[in-house]
Nucleic acid binder design. Structure first.
Lengths: 393, 393
DNA sequence: TACTTTCATTAGATCGATCTAATAACTAAA
DNA sequence: TTTAGTTATTAGATCGATCTAATGAAAGTA
C-alpha cells in the first residue's frame, strides 16, 4: 500500500527504475490492482525497465463515460440536457461525474461548437469611478446571459488598445465592448466587425467606425447644465477639462454654446480650458482660470472627477466652491454625493449605460444582424449644493 | 464578376439552385477562377444541382501553411519563434499570415499545450473603491506576465461565489485570486488547489484554506490607529462597522483592544458597533452610537467607506466630524483625500496588495510548489484633518 | 408478419492549435 | 564514397469537447 502515498503528492509524477525481475513482476501486479480499483485516478507509463506512475489531474468526459458505461457522445448529451436521454442513463452519468469530480471544459466545447461565452471589455482606466460604475453595469447584465468578462485597460494609449484588441480576438471573445482611445483609427474595429465579432462603443464615439454605440446625449447634457447656471443668474460660465478631440467633449461643448447663445450671451474662448480628465487635470485648469483678468462666476466641468479637482484647487486658493463660485459636473459618480459641497451634476446614468451596452452586444452575438444602432440616454440634472452662488454679490 | 458581390455580405452564405447545364458549367468555371485567386476566402459546397458558396470567416494555421507552401507544423514553429526555422521560410509564413489576416487561436493552442493564459479574479464588489484599487494593482501586474483577467463579483453571496469558482474552472483559468465571502467553506478552495490550480486569497483570510494569502497586518493597523487617537487624548474610542466574522475585522479589533489595554483603558462593548461595510452601514452605526448615554469622543472605522458614511451622518446630526468627533478610517481609498474634512486613515496599500497577489499567483502558476505563503503588508497611518478634536473641551 | 416511425445511443470526424517521432536535406568527418 | 551528425521540416496523433450520420431497438401501423 505504500505506493499509494506517491499519489497524494499534488500534481507530481512518481517514477522509479527497477532492475530485479521480481520487482518488475510485483510492480506489474500493483499496477493491475491500482488500475482495477482507481482506473480514473492513475496513469502508467512504462519505458524499458522504467515505470512512470502519474496522477491523472484532469478528468475528461471520456473518463466519465467509461465509468458510467456509456459512450462519450451520450455523456455529452446528458451534459447538455438532451431530451433523448433516458432518466436512468442520465442519473448514471451524473452520478459518475459527481464521483469522479468532473470539471466541464467549456473551452474545448466552445472550440468545437464555435460559440463563445466570453466578452471582451476594454476601458480606459479602472481607478476612474465612471469606468468602474460602467463596468458594474456591464458585468451584471452580461452575467445574466451567462457571459464571462475578460478585462483590459488602455490608459488611453493607442498601442495598448491595439494589443488588447488582438488579445481579445485570440481569446475568441464573442464580442467586444470598447471605450475607445480618442483619435484611434476605426479601421481595426471595422476589421473586427468583418470577422463577425460585434463591437459596441460606449461613451466615446469614433467617426467612421461602423458599429453600435451606447452613450449619453452630450449636447443635451451640456445644454441643461448651462441652462441651469444661466437661470441662476450667471453670465460668465467657464467650460473646464477634457479634450476637444473627444466626441463627448464636442457634444457637451455644443450644448454649452447653444445654451449660451440662446440666453443671448457670447462665447468667450478664454473661458474654455482643456485639460486631462483627471483630478489633477481639474487642478491645473483652475490654476489657469485664476490667472484670467475677468474671472467667471460659474464653471461647467467636463466630468465630476475634474470638478472634484477643481473644487480642491479653489479651496486652496481661498475661493469657496458653491459659495463664491458655482460648479456643475457631469456623470454623477458616487463621490459627487459625498464631497462638500455636494456636487450638482448631470447624471449620465453610467450603470444603465453599461447595462444597455451589454444587452446590445449580446443581441448582436445572438445574431441579430441589424444596421448599426445607437442608444442615446437622456441625461438629467441632479441639483445638490455646489451652485449656491448666483453670480451676484 | 457579379458573383463576387455575394462575398461582401458579412458572415453570410450565398446559395443558388441551377437547372441549365450551361449555367452549371459557367459556375464551375467561376468556382475554379475564384479558388485560384482567393483560395482562402471562399468555400464551395455542391449538393446536387445546388451549389453553396460561403465566406470562410476563420483563417486557420492550416490555411496559412497551405498558402505559404509549408506544413501546419512548420507554420506553428514560426509562430512560436523556433530557432530551427530558416529565415526564408519564416518570412514566407509571416507574409502569408499578414496577407490572409490570420488570427491566432490561443484557446485552441492552450487546449493542446495544457497551459492557460487567463487568471480568474473574484471580488466582492466593484463599486467599492477598495476593490477597484485592488483590481488595478492585480490587473497591471498580471498584464506584465501576459495573463488576461476574467472577472467575477460575488456581492458577498456564497452561492454566487460557488458559481463563479465553477465558471472560472470551466474556463480553464491558470489560477484564481479570491477575496472570499466571509464564512464561506474552505473545502471548495482546497479542492481547486488539489486540481493543481493555485488560489491566492486577498484581504480576507479563510481558516482551514490551504493556500496563499496576501493582506495587510490588521492587528498592527488597528493598533496604530487607536494608538494615535489615545495619544491625541481620547479615552472613549468606538469601533464602528464591519462584521466580527471577517478575519480582517478580528485583526483590527485585536489591535484596538491591545492599544486600549496598553494605554490602561478598558474595553467598553457598547462602543463596538457592527454594520455592513458600506456607506449606509456607516450611517446606521452612527445612528446607534448617538443613542448611547455616554458618547465616545473618537471613532475608529472598519474602513474608509464606513468612515465616509459616518461623517455624513454626524454632519446631519449637527456634529462636526474632525472638530467635535475624531475619525480614523482604514484602507486609504482615493475618496479619503478629497472629502471634507480629509480623512485620517490607515493605508493598506491596496494597489500594492493587488500587485503582490498577482506576483504570488503567477509564481505558483509557473510551478513553484512551495508551502502556502502569506504576504503581510505593513500598514501606515496617513494623518489628515479628521482628528482635530482632542477629546477635551 | 412486414414495414415504417420514433427514440436512445454511438462511432468517427471535427474544431485549431501543439507535440512526438520520424524523415529528408545538408554538412563534416572517416 | 560512405557514415555519422546536425538541422530543417513534416505526418499523424492529440487536447476535450461537439456534431453528423448511422445504428439498433422498441413501438406503431398496415
Amino acid at each position: 500500500m505504500h505506493e499509494l502515498v506517491l499519489l497524494t503528492l499534488p500534481n507530481q509524477a512518481a517514477s522509479l527504475t527497477v532492475n530485479s525481475p521480481y520487482l518488475i513482476l510485483s510492480l506489474v501486479l500493483i499496477r493491475l490492482t491500482l488500475l482495477a480499483h482507481l482506473p480514473f485516478m492513475v496513469n502508467f507509463v512504462v519505458l524499458g525497465g522504467h515505470m512512470k506512475l502519474e496522477k491523472k489531474t484532469h478528468i475528461t468526459l471520456q473518463d466519465v463515460a467509461k465509468h458510467a458505461g456509456v459512450s462519450r457522445a451520450t455523456a455529452s448529451l446528458v451534459l447538455r440536457g438532451s431530451k433523448h436521454i433516458t432518466e436512468a442513463t442520465r442519473e448514471k452519468v451524473l452520478a459518475s461525474m459527481q464521483q469522479l469530480g468532473y470539471v466541464y471544459d467549456r473551452v474545448a466545447a466552445n472550440l468545437r461548437s464555435k460559440v463563445s461565452t466570453t466578452v471582451g471589455l476594454i476601458i480606459m482606466e479602472l481607478a476612474n469611478p465612471f469606468y468602474s460604475e460602467l463596468l458594474v453595469g456591464i458585468h451584471q447584465e452580461l452575467d445574466k446571459f451567462g457571459q464571462t468578462v475578460i478585462l483590459g485597460t488602455t490608459f488611453d494609449s493607442q498601442s495598448i488598445q491595439e494589443r488588447l484588441l488582438s488579445t481579445m480576438l485570440e481569446h475568441r471573445v464573442g464580442g467586444i465592448i470598447l471605450s475607445a482611445v480618442p483619435g484611434s483609427p476605426s479601421a481595426p474595429i471595422n476589421r473586427i466587425e468583418q470577422l463577425g465579432i460585434p463591437v459596441v462603443l460606449v461613451g466615446r464615439r469614433l467617426p467612421e467606425a461602423n458599429c453600435d454605440y451606447v452613450g449619453v446625449d452630450n449636447v443635451l447634457g451640456g445644454q441643461i447644465a448651462v441652462d441651469y447656471l444661466v437661470q441662476k443668474g450667471h453670465r460668465r460660465i467657464a467650460l473646464v477639462g477634457g479634450f476637444s478631440q473627444l466626441s463627448s467633449w464636442q457634444g457637451r461643448k455644443q450644448g454649452y454654446d447653444h445654451a449660451l447663445l440662446q440666453a443671448g450671451l457670447t462665447i468667450d474662448p478664454s473661458l474654455i480650458i482643456e485639460s486631462p480628465a483627471t483630478r489633477q487635470g481639474g487642478i491645473e485648469a483652475i490654476e489657469k482660470l485664476l490667472l484670467l483678468p475677468d474671472r467667471p462666476t460659474a464653471i461647467f466641468c467636463y466630468n465630476d472627477t475634474i470638478a472634484i479637482g477643481a473644487m480642491m484647487k479653489l479651496k486652496d486658493a481661498g475661493i469657496n466652491p458653491g459659495q463664491d463660485m458655482a460648479i456643475v459636473g457631469f456623470d454623477d459618480i458616487p463621490e459627487a454625493a459625498i464631497i462638500s459641497p455636494k456636487l450638482t451634476t448631470v447624471s449620465s446614468f453610467t450603470r444603465m449605460m453599461g447595462a444597455h451596452a451589454a444587452r446590445l452586444l449580446y443581441s448582436r452575438i445572438e445574431g441579430s444582424a441589424l444596421e448599426p444602432t445607437s442608444v442615446i440616454l437622456k441625461p438629467q440634472l441632479i441639483v445638490r449644493d455646489s451652485c449656491s452662488f448666483t453670480g451676484k454679490y
